[in-house]
Design a protein around this nucleic acid. Structure first.
Lengths: 339, 339
DNA sequence: TTTGTGAATGAAAGCGCTTTCATTGTCAAT
DNA sequence: ATTGACAATGAAAGCGCTTTCATTCACAAA
């Protein structure tokens, strides 16, 4: 192991002081062009890499952007992460993820850990932080973006969409198709799932069709298999459900599979609408209706806003609603039954 | 903003020197129980958090474990990450991910960045690093685990399974079921996909059934929709394919959907076998055969081995083959056609 | 009592950078 | 020529820890 090249080695080799080398790296405009080029040459030649710890310690800040998401395995967050990544890749910032596992307490702890590092910025999920977390975020000396939801009380910046409105739209669509006994299937009842349930409930109340027995939920996290099971539970209740709005597409696909197995015709005997519009929904048989959400774009926008703020640029829209799109497909287009 | 609590603040409040506080944190056995308890109390009371930058700078090492994976959005890696997480959560180590995007060049760059931080350990994907990366890893002053594959020439430690053997088993199974024109569908031809293709080819050659025209691949990354398309491409070739082995389950599900649409009976007219055994495969109609791989366990083992090594414990099996399991389901169990 | 030993603690020197402040040199304005 | 302003650079003081080395003290052995 050869010793690491330090800033002072570069300085010595270039015949300048350490301060000047540091300036070349941090504020190159402060160094005369000739010296700057020479130093850059030496850096290249020696293969110098700044020690991030020393840098962070001396400057009392890092180039770390912390990201708190509830789950790594959920497709939704994977897409968001991809968006974040694609933008951050070309920036000088390092991303650091942490997984709150849908726990406000873990979130709070992780937040403290992150903040203790003086991150350049922070991305957190949702609006349902614990009061302590919220205070921490408010007092944070770095910009913060909340993602996945909209709301009128951002900690700092926010980008997402309305779960209530999108679920309302999906449910209203089912009502419009003539379904009368529309169930809600929900897994892992996180705040966003709850809001979707709210949108569902509101739409049915407006149509005079609400019946709480039609709501089937579980704290387990959602899978296709779970969709099959939840449909089974629903059918056991013998409420003559003729449609289901699923909290997400995994469940919706499971419902579709289970309907096939039980010879329940989709969409005539059972309408199905999912949530998130995973790519597979469009190629299932029949294709499954869903609410399209802009997950990757959400990630991209979040990190862009953050970087703009970090670098002192004005953020024109600190509260960004990306909306949603109802993708109507065969699974929810009922051929109206004969009277 | 209240000033951060420093080690020296704790020391002052506890009436001891900074060195002693540091010892309580790093090597508590060196401090007498009474003093230790008192200091821990003060730490708790003041809400002291060590500054990781200062710590790293002073000790010339970090508690960061770097993880290099090719993709964040792939289910497979998501499962591996979950495994890694579940173990690391209760350890003092911080995880830091980076995404190589299936590029050896990016991997090399990221490796340099990681190594410049003197990580406590490193997890990298696969065995196909560039020669330069391999050299970097060999010279690394920290333990390294390669995941996702087995091989006889590990950089340091390795945990995974044989893609060749598992694909061979899947293909041999299809042969055994009486299929005679077995296609291979592959997307994003990364090294592991290639090895699966090798296993497929070998099995068919052994059976005297190999025909390279039956191989349909694309550099695009795999989706269910792509499975539909690839099946379309295969059928256009009019080779009377009667089975497909898919590089992964996304493709396999797409093939199933496309068969349904084209009224191709599965498994009688078309056998299907996927790879990875995502949970949804078991509940599709018909259930789809697949190769089960132990992704989460792979992550768990990888980080365990790493931590054991970091902490100086002997690793009994530095080259761990987790194997695989052929999950035979209806999609590949042909009712043999009449003669 | 004296001595040696080891456990417990403190003093102080960095770790490799950044940044403030001081210094020097250059050039336009007077 | 003199002054002032500003650009370019260097000296040096930390940033908040860890760790080496020295010191103190208690206690067992002689």
């Amino acid at each position: 192991m050869e010793a690491r090249v330090r800033l002072s080695d570069v300085a010595k080799a270039a015949g300048v002081s350490a301060a000047t080398v540091s300036r070349v790296l941090r504020r190159p405009e402060l160094v005369s062009p000739g010296v700057r080029e020479r130093i850059l040459g030496v850096i290249e030649e020696l293969g110098y890499f700044a020690n991030p710890a020393a840098r962070a310690l001396a400057s009392a800040r890092t180039n770390v952007i912390g990201i708190l998401i509830p789950s790594l395995t959920n497709n939704v967050f994977a897409d968001v992460l991809r968006g974040i990544y694609s933008v951050a890749q070309d920036s000088p910032y390092d991303l650091q993820f942490a997984n709150t596992r849908y726990s406000n307490l873990e979130e709070e702890n992780l937040l403290r850990v992150f903040l203790s590092q003086k991150p350049a910025g922070l991305i957190v999920t949702g609006t349902d932080q614990s009061p302590a977390s919220r205070t921490l975020l408010k007092q944070a000396s770095c910009p913060v973006v909340q993602i996945m939801e909209t709301g009128d009380d951002p900690v700092d910046m926010m980008v997402g969409f309305s779960h209530v409105r999108s679920a309302h739209a999906a449910t209203a669509h089912l009502v419009g198709q003539g379904y009368r006994s529309i169930a809600f299937l929900g897994a892992r009842m996180d705040p966003r799932t709850r809001r979707r349930m709210q949108g569902y409930s509101r739409a049915l109340e407006e149509a005079g069709l609400f019946d709480e027995r039609l709501i089937v939920t579980t704290p387990r996290s959602s899978t296709v298999t779970l969709g099959c099971e939840l449909l089974g539970l629903l059918l056991e209740k013998e409420l003559n459900a003729d449609a289901v709005f699923c909290n997400n597409d995994d469940l919706a696909l499971g419902v579709l599979f289970e309907c096939q197995r039980r010879r329940i015709a989709v969409p005539s005997q059972m309408g199905i609408c999912g949530f998130n519009d995973l790519e597979m929904m469009a190629v299932a048989n029949p294709p499954v209706s869903s609410i399209r959400t802009f997950r990757q774009e959400m990630g991209e926008q979040a990190i862009r806003m953050l970087i703009d703020r970090i670098e002192g640029r004005a953020v024109t829209t600190p509260l960004l609603d990306l909306g949603f799109e109802l993708m109507v497909r065969q699974s929810s287009q009922r051929q109206l039954p004969p009277l």
